[in-house]
Computed example of a mutant assay.
Amino acid sequence: MQEFLNWTVETIREDKLLSPWLEEKKFEWAPLVSKNITNILDKSYSVLIITDKERDWFLNYILSNINSSKLNRPFLPFYDFSSFFKNLDHIKSEDDISNIKDMLQISFPNGYCFWYIGKSQDNRSTLAKITKSSFLWIFDEERQGSLNLKSNDIALDMKLLELFRLYNKTLSAALFANINVEN
């Protein structure tokens, strides 16, 4: 079983579709992904994906590819959060948040985490940012415990696709015990 950080660097260098900029993010990436994959594989968490409006295309891309039969792995519990709660843009109060959390605790007794991709100041980020177990790909804010990107980066869409490719490869490697994400 290969050590996670070394595997990540090796994968970035060997995969022709991944760019060297990812290697610069390795220390930001490794603990974030480790926590997320441990929650999924060891704690049986479900992943509720939320994006800002501009990244709705990316949400669809993730959901179309995360459980592809081409991956030859079991399907994993990734869901579009808006399929559970349509009024995400209209969360106004702590009561709204409390009611949503109650619903999710009933729906996901093993636990859940949010995967948020988008601008930090977007209203859709609220739930994810206040939930400890969230997997955050935040734009335009330097936030500890998240992957920090810039929304004005002209290569942002390509970077998101590369990050997803690396994440999906990491999921498979952890699932098939090729790496230990806890180390």
Rank of each mutant, 00 (worst) to 15 (best):
R55G: 05
L163H: 00
W115G: 03
K70I: 07
G118W: 03
L127C: 02
L41H: 00
L161K: 13
L156D: 01
F75Y: 07
I130Q: 10
S93T: 15
N168Q: 15
A173M: 06
K132A: 10
L48S: 01
W7V: 00
N99K: 07
E142I: 13
S82V: 11
I138V: 12
K43D: 05
M1Q: 12
S46C: 03
M103P: 14
N67L: 12
N99L: 11
W7T: 01
W7F: 00
S133K: 14
P31N: 08
Q2W: 05
P77W: 08
F108I: 09
E28F: 06
N6Q: 13
N180V: 02
I12H: 08
I12G: 07
Q121D: 09
W115Y: 08
S125M: 03
L136W: 02
L171S: 04
N148Q: 12
P20K: 09
F139P: 12
P31H: 04
T8L: 11
F58Y: 00
N110E: 12
E94R: 12
E142W: 14
L32K: 12
E24L: 11
V47W: 00
N148L: 12
E28R: 07
S44N: 12
L17V: 10
N152E: 09
F75C: 15
D96Q: 07
N123T: 07
R13H: 08
K169C: 02
D95P: 06
D42W: 05
N39V: 01
Y116I: 02
Y116L: 03
L136H: 04
F75G: 15
E94M: 12
N99F: 01
L17T: 11
K92F: 02
L22W: 04
G118C: 05
P74D: 08
K150R: 14
N123K: 13
M158S: 12
A155K: 11
K70A: 09
I91Y: 00
I106K: 10
N123S: 12
I40T: 03
W29T: 01
Y61K: 00
S44A: 05
M1E: 13
E141W: 07
I138K: 14
F4R: 07
E3R: 15
F164Q: 01
N180W: 00
V9I: 14
D52E: 01
K92E: 15
F176W: 15
